[in-house]
Design a protein around this nucleic acid. Structure first.
Length: 376
RNA sequence: GGGGAGAUACCAAAGCGGCCAACUGGGGCAGACUGUAAAUCUGCUGGCAUAUGCCUUCGGAGGUUCGAAUCCUUCUCUCCCCA
C-alpha cells in the first residue's frame, strides 16, 4: 500500500491524498460506508458504486465470523466475491464488539470470549485468530484486535486497557507478518490508538502505534459518549504523534460537522453508521442542515431532499414523498434515505478534498459546519 | 313479529360502585441514534396550569348513593339469531 499526499492545507492540518494498492485507489479524505454483515443495510453494491461512488466499505470480523461463517466465506473466495464488490473492503476486528457487547464477553490476556448474540455459543477471539479471520474475509485493510474502553473509564482502567491493546497489537502484527493473503489482493493491517481521554495515555499509545511502522494508523475509543470538544482535543493530540506520511483513520466518526473538523485536524479516513442507521430512522443530512423527515412540517414540502444537488438522489425525490414513504413504513423510504445520506457524506468529503486542493478548505469548512449542525 | 348482545377518548378495545382523566394496541405528534445485537428504542397523545393542582368526559335524559364509565328508569341508535 502506498499513500501519497497531494496537498497539505496551509491553514489547518488537513491533507488531500491518495491510497493505492493493487486493488485500486482511494482519494482522501474519504468516508467509508459501514456494511457490518456484508451488506450496507438497504443499499446494493451497484448503488454504492453508481449513486454513492464509495471507493471503500467496511465489514465486521465478529459478525461475519458468526454468520455466514468462515467456511462459506472461504468457499466463496472471500467477501469481495461473495457480495459482488470489487472495490476496497476494510474490516473492523471485533474490537468494537468488545465494547458494544460488553455483557456478552469476557476479556483475558489471551483474548476475548464472546457469547454469540445469535445462538449463545462461545467463541474465543485472539489477536492472532482475528488476523486469520480477516485473511479469510480477504479485506484490503484489516484492523488489529483492540479493546475499545467505554466512556467514562477511570485512569487506572484506561491504562490497563491500553496496555492490553498494545500487547495484543504486538501479537497481532507478528501473526500478520507470518501469514499470507489467500487471494489475489494485498492486505494491510492498521493498529489502533487507545487511551480514553487521558493526554499522557493517548500520547503514549500514539507513539507506540507510530513505532510499528504500519501502512496506516487508526484512532479508536472516541465518539463513545465523551463531549465533542474532548474528542477533538484527543484527535489533535494523537495526530501530533502519528506519522504524517501515513493515512490516519478515525474510527466510528461521525456527524458531518465532526468529519470536517477532524479533517482539519489531519484525519484522512472515516466510517460511521450514522448515515445509514439514522437514515433508516428518518434523519436526512442535507447541505442546509439536518432534517427529521418524519416531521409534519415536510408533509407538503415538494422541494428536493437537498435542493443544492449534492447528490442525484437528493434532487430526484421530494421531501414530501420521502416523508410519505417513511411514515407509511414503505421499505423504499429507508432505502432512499440511506442512499441519499451516504451520497451526501461522500459528497462532503470529496468537496473537502477539492477545497484542500484549491486552498480554500478552512474558510469553506467554517462556513458549512454551522449550516450542517442546524436542525431544520 | 319473537329472542339476544351492545353503545367508552381519533380508531379498536379493557374497565362493571371509590385505587379512573380511564389498562392495552393502532394511529397521530415529537425525541434519541457516532469502528451496527437497531427498518430500533423512548416520551407525549381531554383542556388549562404543565411539581402537588383545577375544570369538562365514558350514546341522550332522569334517578339511587357520601361517591357512578360502573346500579336503576327511560329514550335513541347499532349488531346477531329465529320466523
Amino acid at each position: 500500500m502506498k499513500f501519497q499526499i497531494k496537498v497539505t492545507d496551509k491553514d489547518s492540518s488537513a491533507r488531500a491524498g491518495k491510497i493505492s494498492t493493487t486493488r485500486g485507489e482511494i482519494e482522501t479524505p474519504v468516508f467509508m460506508p459501514v456494511g457490518t454483515v456484508g451488506s450496507v443495510k438497504g443499499v446494493s453494491t451497484g448503488d454504492l458504486e453508481e449513486k454513492i461512488n464509495a471507493p471503500v466499505i467496511l465489514g465486521n470480523t465478529y459478525h461475519l465470523y458468526l454468520r455466514p461463517g468462515l467456511e462459506v466465506l472461504k468457499e466463496a473466495g472471500g467477501l469481495h466475491r461473495f457480495m459482488g464488490w470489487n472495490r476496497f473492503i476494510l474490516t473492523d476486528s471485533g474490537g468494537y464488539q468488545v465494547f458494544s457487547l460488553t455483557e456478552k464477553r469476557k476479556l483475558s490476556e489471551q483474548g476475548a470470549v464472546f457469547s454469540s448474540h445469535i445462538d449463545g455459543s462461545k467463541h474465543l477471539f485472539t489477536p492472532e485468530n482475528v488476523v486469520d479471520t480477516q485473511r479469510i474475509i480477504g479485506s484490503d485493510i484489516m484492523m488489529a484486535f483492540d479493546e475499545c474502553p467505554p466512556y467514562p473509564s477511570d485512569y487506572r482502567y484506561a491504562k490497563k486497557s491500553m496496555e492490553l491493546t498494545h500487547r495484543w497489537l504486538d501479537r497481532g502484527l507478528n501473526h500478520f507478518k507470518s501469514t499470507e493473503p489467500p487471494y489475489a489482493n494485498d492486505q494491510s493491517i492498521f493498529p489502533i490508538v487507545q487511551g480514553s481521554i487521558y493526554h499522557d495515555l493517548r500520547k503514549e499509545s500514539a507513539e507506540f502505534v507510530a513505532g510499528k511502522n504500519c501502512h496506516g494508523n487508526a484512532i479508536g475509543g472516541l465518539s463513545v459518549g465523551e463531549p465533542v470538544d474532548i474528542m477533538y482535543e484527543m484527535v489533535s493530540l494523537v495526530n501530533q504523534y502519528l506519522p504524517a506520511d501515513k493515512p490516519r483513520y478515525l474510527m466510528g466518526v461521525g456527524t458531518p460537522a465532526n468529519i470536517l473538523e477532524c479533517i482539519a485536524l489531519g484525519v484522512d479516513m472515516f466510517d460511521c453508521v450514522m448515515p445509514t442507521r439514522n437514515g433508516r430512522n428518518g434523519t436526512v443530512f442535507t447541505s442546509e442542515g439536518v432534517i427529521n423527515i418524519r416531521n409534519k412540517q415536510w408533509q407538503k414540502d415538494f422541494s428536493p431532499i437537498d435542493p443544492a444537488g449534492t447528490t442525484g438522489y437528493g434532487l430526484k425525490y421530494s421531501k414530501a414523498y420521502l416523508r410519505h414513504l417513511v411514515v407509511a413504513g414503505e421499505m423504499l423510504g429507508p432505502i432512499i434515505a440511506s442512499i441519499h445520506n451516504l451520497a451526501f457524506y461522500l459528497w462532503l468529503v470529496s468537496e473537502a478534498r477539492n477545497k484542500i486542493l484549491s486552498g480554500e478548505f478552512n474558510l469553506w469548512k467554517n462556513q458549512i459546519v454551522k449550516k450542517l449542525a442546524q436542525r431544520l
